[in-house]
Amino acid sequence: MIHFKNISKSFGKNLVLQNVDLQINTPGIFALLGPNGSGKTTLIKTFMGMVCANSGEILFNQQVVSGNEYRKKISYLPQIARFPENLTPLEFFDFIEKLRGPAPRKEELIHWFNIEAFLHKTLRNLSGGTRQKINLVSCLMYNNPVLILDEPSTGLDPVAMLKLKKWILAESQQGKQIILCSHLMDFVQELADEVIFMLDGEVHYRGNQHQLLAQTNTQTLEEAIANLLSEPKAQLVC
């Protein structure tokens, strides 16, 4: 129940979003795809209130987004895992919990991603993959109806990757809305129900993954995207 209404945003002269109009009404996994600089992250950030749009408005559950309370229902995973470096993961989770309230699934996720051994080391000394796992735990430990995951698979080993996929699918099955930004096409292909393809600050294509594959007559999402990039826009929008 997210509705972007004619969102435009520019950074200086650089027009990043142009009249983006997008509705996500049904549960499911939505892959937000597009080349670098196409506006995916900016679009998400306007929704999270991190970027102020120049024009347009965003509705969440039929209400114009304002204030901070609506974020209680959203779990957001930032693209790059950055933490207060002097804290240990446990203190960091504690930090998040203090800000947002007790997290019901913390222990479960710590176990799920198998990071018990790192809980008492300072974040500064942890490897990229471990940091991403901690990032994931801090995001997923809340049982929220909306999940926004920006590049969740960065730096993960195959085992963790598998676990992440399982978790996302399980969440989806509970009827949640999951928005997924990723460059790993096979990862997206396995999960996504719908594909939203952005190009130059506009929604270039939106549709069911199977339809897209069928329409472009391709086997993989990667090929489909490559195909999309070479096709004129008008033909593709359903």
């Binding site: 999270m48 991190m50 309370e69 959203i74 790059i80 950055r82 933490f83 470096e85 800000l99 801090s138």
Partner: peptide
């Protein structure tokens, strides 16, 4: 500047 790096994490929380 160090905080600035993980500020997104905070902004995603329901606090102003």
């Amino acid at each position: 500047y160090q905080v600035r790096e993980y500020v997104e994490l905070l902004l995603a929380q329901p606090i102003s």
